[in-house]
Simulated scan of single mutants.
Amino acid sequence: MESTDIPFTKQMRKATREIHDVSDALVNAKLAVALSNNSVWAEGLLIFYEIFRYLEEAMDRLKDTPVGELKFDGIRRTEGFKEDLDYYLGENWALSYTPRESVMKYLMHLRDLEASDPEMLMAYIYHLYMGLLSGGQILRRKRQIVDKYLPSFSSNNRSDKVTEFGEASISQLKKQMTTAMNNIAESLTPEKREKLIEESKMVFILNNEIVRTVRGTHWVILTKLIVAAISVAMVSFAVNYALRKK
């Protein structure tokens, strides 16, 4: 058990560092393609839409418990997810949508936690929202850079409501989330804190399972390699032709 002198959020990060690194590598490998491909970006949104929606509804249901203390103005993302999915998939996408098996497994785990030990949901709320406020913002900026400096690799038409927090300060939102989690932890028993730390590992295990199901990444990478190869071949042909003309 970590010393209580160390902020609880730092204890969570330390305990999950190894699995978190695996998760980051997987997200980078899968969703980096989404920097220039909207269909892959929409796939990424789709797998997390139900998870965020469940957590936000749970925060409402549990508003009078410690779970509800992690809900504050500007953090809700469900509408942002829906707006982006409406943009990329069409407004009627939900009519024929069925969550994939890995997402249903994730949701069942969250439901079991809410029924048996709802405070464990705080591990998911903390890590997922901090993910949007950290890695999500990095992906947002990278997509903007691709649009600006590599227009030939850009889809140009974007909807990034899920990573847009309006006038709210990202650093302030992160500070609010961290402070709230640390304050709540002070009121928990050592056993409950240890259990939350262990559940934090499951957050990334389940995240990795659903991220692995993102489709389309291999085809997009292959297409770009083909385009790049053709471009190199054309340049080589042009240079050789110019040399022969001399």
Results as ranks from 00 to 15, higher is better:
residue 3 S to T: 12
residue 3 S to G: 08
residue 6 I to L: 14
residue 7 P to Y: 05
residue 13 R to D: 10
residue 13 R to L: 12
residue 16 T to H: 04
residue 18 E to Q: 13
residue 18 E to D: 14
residue 20 H to D: 08
residue 20 H to V: 04
residue 21 D to P: 02
residue 21 D to Q: 14
residue 22 V to K: 13
residue 23 S to K: 06
residue 23 S to V: 00
residue 23 S to F: 03
residue 24 D to S: 11
residue 25 A to G: 11
residue 26 L to K: 10
residue 27 V to Y: 04
residue 27 V to A: 11
residue 28 N to D: 12
residue 28 N to T: 09
residue 31 L to T: 00
residue 34 A to R: 02
residue 34 A to P: 01
residue 35 L to D: 01
residue 36 S to E: 06
residue 37 N to G: 04
residue 41 W to P: 00
residue 41 W to R: 05
residue 42 A to L: 02
residue 44 G to W: 00
residue 44 G to N: 01
residue 46 L to A: 06
residue 46 L to F: 01
residue 47 I to M: 01
residue 48 F to Y: 06
residue 50 E to V: 07
residue 51 I to P: 00
residue 54 Y to D: 01
residue 54 Y to W: 02
residue 56 E to T: 05
residue 57 E to S: 07
residue 63 K to G: 03
residue 63 K to I: 07
residue 65 T to E: 09
residue 67 V to P: 03
residue 67 V to S: 02
residue 70 L to S: 01
residue 74 G to V: 05
residue 76 R to V: 01
residue 78 T to K: 00
residue 81 F to C: 05
residue 83 E to Y: 05
residue 84 D to W: 04
residue 89 L to H: 01
residue 90 G to Q: 12
residue 94 A to F: 08
residue 97 Y to S: 03
residue 99 P to N: 02
residue 100 R to G: 10
residue 101 E to Y: 09
residue 102 S to N: 12
residue 105 K to M: 10
residue 106 Y to M: 04
residue 108 M to I: 08
residue 108 M to Y: 10
residue 110 L to F: 06
residue 111 R to C: 07
residue 112 D to W: 04
residue 112 D to Y: 09
residue 113 L to G: 02
residue 114 E to D: 11
residue 116 S to A: 15
residue 116 S to L: 07
residue 117 D to Y: 08
residue 119 E to Y: 12
residue 119 E to D: 13
residue 123 A to S: 15
residue 126 Y to T: 05
residue 126 Y to G: 04
residue 127 H to I: 00
residue 128 L to T: 06
residue 128 L to H: 08
residue 129 Y to N: 08
residue 132 L to F: 09
residue 134 S to R: 11
residue 135 G to S: 09
residue 137 Q to L: 09
residue 139 L to G: 07
residue 141 R to A: 13
residue 141 R to E: 14
residue 146 V to K: 03
residue 157 N to Q: 14
residue 166 G to F: 04
residue 167 E to D: 15
residue 169 S to P: 06
residue 170 I to E: 10
residue 170 I to N: 07
residue 173 L to M: 15
residue 175 K to P: 00
residue 177 M to D: 04
residue 180 A to L: 06
residue 181 M to Y: 05
residue 181 M to R: 06
residue 181 M to L: 13
residue 181 M to W: 02
residue 182 N to L: 08
residue 185 A to T: 04
residue 188 L to Q: 08
residue 191 E to L: 12
residue 192 K to I: 13
residue 192 K to Y: 04
residue 194 E to D: 15
residue 197 I to Q: 01
residue 197 I to V: 15
residue 198 E to I: 12
residue 199 E to Q: 13
residue 199 E to R: 04
residue 199 E to W: 05
residue 202 M to R: 14
residue 206 L to V: 03
residue 208 N to M: 14
residue 209 E to P: 05
residue 212 R to Q: 15
residue 213 T to V: 11
residue 214 V to E: 03
residue 214 V to C: 08
residue 216 G to T: 06
residue 217 T to F: 03
residue 219 W to M: 12
residue 220 V to T: 12
residue 221 I to T: 14
residue 221 I to M: 13
residue 226 I to W: 11
residue 226 I to H: 10
residue 234 M to L: 15
residue 234 M to N: 08
residue 235 V to L: 15
residue 239 V to R: 11
residue 241 Y to F: 15
residue 241 Y to R: 14
residue 246 K to E: 13
